[in-house]
Each structure stands twice: as C-alpha cells, then as structure tokens.
Nucleic acid binder design. Structure first.
Length: 730
DNA sequence: GCGTTACATATTTTT
DNA sequence: TATGTAACGC
C-alpha cells in the first residue's frame, strides 16, 4: 500500500475511510482526483473489493479517462469489470440492457441538445403554437428542467397559461421522441431513475452489484443524479462523494450544490472530510480566492493553505477598451514567452462568454503567436458533421425522424415542403414512420402501396432516396464502418456539395474526413458504438493536447484545469457577474463561484483584466468594474496602468500600454522585499523633466521601478534609486 | 423547389 | 455581429 505514504493526513483519512456514506469536500488543487483513484485502489487492495463491484461516475469523459489512466498507473493494468464513466454513459448502458422495460428499443438513438430543439420546433409546428411567443430554446429549457427534476408531463405544475402550453408541448415532444426511437440527453437520467424506481427487482440487481459507488464533482449533481446515486447504493450503502460546493457552476443545468448539504441530512451517519491543503497555487492566489468566496452563504467554510509562500502579487489592468484588453493580454504573453521566462502553454486566458474570444483570437493572429481555443466552434456541431452523423443514424435507426428530416434533402434532391407534407401524411395514414414509408418506396418503387400517395416527381425523388437508404441499411450489415461511410459519401455526392472551391468548403470537407478517420477507429466496434460515442463524447474531450500555446477558454471550461499564468478578462459588471444574474441572489452566488473557479486555476500568476468600454454587438458602452474586484484585498493586488490621469492622448496611452506590458514581473520572482516609495497616483518631481504623476510602480530585483507620466514629456520609465525623484504633495 | 436577399433577431455557461 | 428566417423572383 505504498501509495498511502504519498498522501497528507487529510487525504489519507479520506482514502482509508471506513465503508458507509462519505463526503469529501475537496478545495481546489487539493488532490481530489488523487483521493478518488487512491480510494479505488484502497478498496481493491486493502479491502479486497473486486473491481466488478465498483461504480465510479464522473461528469465528463475527460475526468473518467483521467481516472482510468491513473488507475492503470497505480495497478499496472486495467481494472477488469469496474464501471467507470460519466453519468450519462452509465445510464445509457443500463437502459440498453434493460430496454425491455422501456418505451424504446435497445437500439435507441441519443438526441443531443440540437436534436432536442429541433423536436421542440416540430412540436410547436404541429400544435400550431407561435415560436415567437414560445421560443424553442426556452421551451426546451423548461422541458429539460422538468426532466432534471424528475417531473413528467402529468406532474408538471401549471401555475399559469404558459405552463399549460408547455405541458402540451412537453407531451408532444415526448411522443415525437419515442416515435423516433429516441432518448434525449435528460431522458438517460430520468428514465434510468424511473426504471429503478418502478422495478425494484432491477434496482436490486444493480444495487447488489455495486458494493461501492463513487462520485466525482458531487456538487454538480441534479435531482435525478442524486436520486440515482441513492438507488444504486441502496443495498450496500457505500456512497463516496467527492466535491466542492464552491465550484458548483452548473445550476442552469439543474445542478444543485445543496445536494452537498442534503447528503449530510439524508445520511446522518456519514463521514465528512475536508481537504484544505492546496498543492497548486501561491498563498496570494488562495487568499484572493478566499476573500471572494467567503461572501457566499450556505457553504462549508474552508481554509485553503499552500506551502508555496505568497508568490507574486496579482496584477490588475484596466484597458481603455476591449481591443486594448486583448492587446494587453497578447503583448504580455508575448513578452514573457520571447523573454524565455515562460512557455506558451503556461498561459490561459479565461472569459465569461465565448463571444469574448474573438478579439483575443484576432490579437493572437496579428501577433503571430499560436493559441489554442477550447470549446467555441464545436466540431460535432458543424453542419457537415451533423449531416454525416444523421445519415449514419438513419441507417442505424430509420425511425429517427430528426435525422431523416435533416438530410432527406441534403444535398438538394428535389424534396421540398410539398413532398415532405405528403410523406408525413402517407406515413400517418399507414400508421408508420416516414422512414419506413421511404424504405418501402425504395424497395418496391411503383409497386409500393405508398406510390400513389405522391405526385409523379415527388414519388420519383422519394424512391431514389429510399433506395439509397435501404441500400445502406443492407450495406451496414456487410460493410465495415468506414466502407459504409464512403458509400454514403459517394451515393450522395457529398463532396461536390460541400467543396465549392471556397476555403470554407474545403474546410468543411476536411472536417468530414476527420470524422471518417474517427469512423475508421471504430471499424471493429461497429456503427452502434460509434453513434453512442458521438452522442456522449463532447468536443472538450477531443481537444488536441500538448500544443505549446496559450489556451483560450471560458471560465466554465476551465474547471478542473490549472495553468501557471491565468488571465481573467472582462471583469466588468454585466459580464462577470453576467447581466442575467444581477437580480437573482442564487445566480449571483453562482457568478461568484465561477470567478472563484477561475482564480483558483492559477499556479503562480493571476492577471485580472477589464476594459473601460466595450462593444456589445455594435456600439460601445462604458462599463463598470466588476463588483467582485473590490472583494479582493488591495494588498494582494498590484495595479498596472492607471487610466485616471488627466490627459489621455492616444499615443501616450498606447505607449503606456506597451510599456507596462513589457515590465510585467515574471512569475518566478519572489515577493517584493523592498518597500515602494512611489505608489501609483502620487505626484513626483524630477530635476530635468519636472512634475509628473506615477502611473505604475513595482519592485524588480530589489529595485523600485516607476512609470511616470510627466507633464512636460509624457511617459518615462525610471529606476527610483537612480533617478533623483522627489515625492511632492498635490 | 431553389437560391438570393433583406431583415429581424437575440445574444451565458453545455455534460 | 452572425444567424436564422421570411419573402421574393427565378
């Protein structure tokens, strides 16, 4: 049990906890994943638990993979029989096994968020409800919300007329889903919980098997997930939850950090262990983070400690506008990288909204520095990728109407609204799905009973497409996945459709080939598994790793990561906290946690950046500093630049920007030992240049360096000890 | 049925 | 800004 020696006492206590319900509250950087994996190792090695009896659930595939890798390292082999994966993957697995109990067959497709919205739109259309009054995204959110709370249409609380309409939409939506032999993302959880609830014998089977249930990021569980954990651990009662209320940032998706509090109420005998030793950040970072998060109510106070000493002060910078903000970030990174002090991969730039990445990207492109963008342009969200996946899904499951409607006329083959309406009608009259009708048409041509339901031209084009589809279906038995893929590409002449000679078209075609490459990897596993993985694996999981470039990402995407140098930009009211959060205290608390998550990603150096004005789609607006900034104790922060000096000619300001950038202290330097004599804002006198105002001042190599804006000559950078500076009163 | 255009539209976070 | 859609003309 060597691994126990490398743990601190809190960690060891957590890893070796007695069976039963255990709650580990793990502050950022406290070795949470390590505790989780070592716990599994401990269960297997010390307590003799067979991996077969262990279930470990995470929220992301990445986290699951990370645990997998660490376990392999600990054991020198893969653990046979263990269930280790995301909530959704585990549920999908259960549902496919137990499909006999379900309204769908075991080959059900998993509908992603886009598909869900498409279904909502169809429900709106069918029920003749205005999509202006009932925006699809909002209806989708309401349905999703209900499902996350285990609310079925019949239990949906209707407080007003709008709710009643939503219930009707919810019901129709559900019908459409099932007609497509589909299960949406939320159903994976909801249906599993209901299955276990309504069939105690099924529940017992799983609960008996899983002697130990472990959960990562417990604070992000929603009602359904919480319920599920209870069910799965209902026989052996060994539930091991690791999380941190302070890092709960998915409230909008139904996550409820109060589950952490509920855990203690529901299991009064549970053990609660706090991990407060931080191995990531300097004490300065932790102190700032703590000052921010301590203002949140309803949490377990934690005292995060670091052995790494105070480190560098936090640098804060206020740019004139959002362009200058981006320029500051890029310039600073460029200086530190070209100075050889840092690698590109030491840096991360975090922001609240994806839209903010654009100016950054432009600035990076201008500078020639490579960068890595997380999230924004989703590979699986691209049109061409969705098209190809839809073809494959259709082959796998012709009942999938969402996919059918997506690609029935892609590339354009003369199937327009009129023909589609006729197809829907014919299907409804026959009590079949449009997919079946289509395939029958394809097989039998004018001999098909459906033939006469269509006009001459409509019938022909439908027969053509139906023939293709039924061909693929037969092919799917005989052909390998990549071969099927190519067959589809060929038959649809998809390349010609995409690659119109433009750069964009070429890019799209490359994406298709990228997907084909992936299909190639699945040739031994087949279509079903390929599709399941496409549905459950997000883009975040397919990030190219190991590029030596700064990472651009949202604060949400940053959770679980760490970087030496972290920039958090857009620290303005309306962005952080986001304007949609200001009138709801719970939302506001979540914004605070989000900022906290960002702060605690930094190992060495934090940069807090904002802009005095920024363009919100079109026009510029003046912005106020984020309220969270004032929660950070001043002594932890070193303010760079100072917009408040009187004149601000463009050139002087640009000088200042560039200049301060260059002088950003390196992360590796220790904290200042010399006292500053000329704090920013003070007036000084110089023998040759006369009076000026100190704009910036910092200690470097035990020397005080100051930036002064002189009334006579503008900006100068001086060594305080060498220049005969004199401080004067205003 | 298709493609173009103008126009309106709404802009958080996504396993 | 950028995206989607409604309307129009072919």
């Amino acid at each position: 049990m060597d691994f126990l020696n490398d743990l601190n006492s809190q960690q060891r206590q957590a890893v070796t906890a007695a069976p039963g319900q255990t709650l580990v509250l793990a502050g950022p950087g406290s070795g949470k994943t390590r505790v989780l994996t070592n716990r599994i190792a401990y269960l297997v090695q010390a307590m003799g638990v067979r991996p077969y009896h262990i279930l470990a659930v995470t929220f992301t595939n990445k986290a699951a993979r990370e645990m997998q890798t660490r376990l392999e390292r600990l054991f020198g082999a893969t653990l046979d029989g263990i269930w280790l994966g995301t909530f959704h993957a585990a549920c999908a697995r259960i549902l496919r096994r137990e499909a006999d109990y379900l309204p769908v067959s075991s080959s059900f497709v998993i509908m992603d968020a886009d598909d869900q919205e498409t279904l909502v739109k169809r429900a709106l259309k069918e029920l003749n409800i205005s999509d202006k009054l009932y925006r699809p995204s909002s209806v989708h959110a309401a349905i999703s919300n209900a499902k996350n709370n285990l609310t079925l249409p019949e239990n949906f609380p209707t407080r007003n007329y709008r709710d009643e309409v939503i219930v009707r939409l919810y019901e129709r939506y559900q019908q459409l889903l099932q007609a497509s032999n589909g299960v949406d993302f939320d159903d994976l959880l909801l249906m599993t919980v209901n299955l276990l609830e309504n069939h105690p014998e099924v529940k017992e089977r799983y609960a008996r098997r899983f002697e130990h249930v472990l959960v990562d990021e417990f604070q992000d569980t929603n009602v359904a997930q919480y319920q599920l954990l209870g069910q799965l651990s209902s026989y052996h009662h060994n539930l091991y939850a690791v999380g941190d209320e302070d890092q709960s940032i998915y409230r909008w998706r139904g996550a409820d950090y109060r589950n952490v509090l509920r855990f203690a109420e529901d299991f009064p005998g549970c053990q609660k262990i706090l991990l407060e030793q931080n191995y990531r950040s300097t004490q300065t970072v932790l102190d700032a983070a703590r000052a921010v998060i301590d203002r949140n109510p309803y949490r377990t106070p934690k005292n995060l400690r670091s052995d790494r000493g105070p480190g560098n002060p936090i640098l804060s910078y206020e740019a004139v506008d959002d362009h200058a903000e981006a320029a500051y970030v890029v310039d600073t990174i460029q200086q530190l990288v070209s100075g050889g002090k840092c690698k590109g991969s030491d840096f991360a730039v975090m922001y609240r909204t994806n839209a903010q990445s654009r100016l950054l990207e432009e600035a990076f492109l201008r500078s020639g520095l490579p960068y890595r963008l997380v999230g924004a342009q989703r590979f699986y969200g691209r049109r061409e990728i969705k098209d190809m996946i839809s073809f494959l899904r259709l082959v796998h499951n012709p009942a999938d109407e969402v996919s059918l409607m997506r690609v029935i006329n892609v590339p354009p083959r003369g199937i327009g609204d009129k023909t589609l309406v006729a197809l829907q009608l014919a299907a409804r009259q026959a009590g079949a799905g449009p997919g079946e009708v289509l395939i029958d048409l394809g097989r039998q041509g004018d001999q098909s009973p459906y033939w006469k339901s269509f006009s001459g031209r409509g019938a022909t084009v439908l027969v053509d497409f139906g023939a293709m589809l039924s061909d693929w279906r037969e092919g799917s038995q005989a052909l390998t996945l990549p071969a099927l893929f190519d067959r589809i590409l060929n038959d649809t002449v998809y390349q010609a459709y995409l690659d119109d000679g433009s750069e964009e078209g070429q890019g799209r075609w490359e994406n298709v080939q990228e997907l084909r490459k992936l299909a190639y990897e699945y040739q031994d596993r087949g279509l079903t598994e390929f599709l399941e993985n496409l549905a459950l694996v997000s883009d975040q999981d397919t990030l190219p790793e190991q590029t030596d470039a700064p990472t651009l990402l949202t604060l949400h995407a940053a959770k679980g990561l760490e970087f030496s140098h972290v920039f958090i930009i857009g620290l303005d009211e309306g962005l952080i906290p986001h304007s949609r959060s200001i009138d709801d205290p719970e939302e506001m608390a979540e914004e605070r946690r989000l900022f906290y998550v960002g702060l605690t990603r930094a190992r060495n150096q934090l940069y807090l950046v904002r802009a005095g004005q920024r363009s919100t789609y079109g026009s510029y607006e003046v912005s106020e500093p984020s309220r969270f900034l004032s929660d950070i104790p001043e002594e932890l922060v070193h303010t760079q630049g100072n917009r408040s000096h009187g004149r601000r000619s463009t050139s002087a300001w640009q000088d200042a920007t560039r200049w301060q950038t260059r002088s950003a202290p390196s992360a590796m330097k220790s904290a200042p030992v010399v006292e500053r004599r000329f704090p920013p804002g003070s007036r000084v006198n110089h023998p040759t240049w006369g009076e000026g105002m100190v704009v910036d001042s910092r200690i470097q190599d035990e020397e005080e360096t100051v930036d002064v804006f002189f009334d006579s000559v503008g900006f100068k950078r001086l060594l305080a000890s060498a220049a005969k500076l004199e401080r004067i009163r205003k």
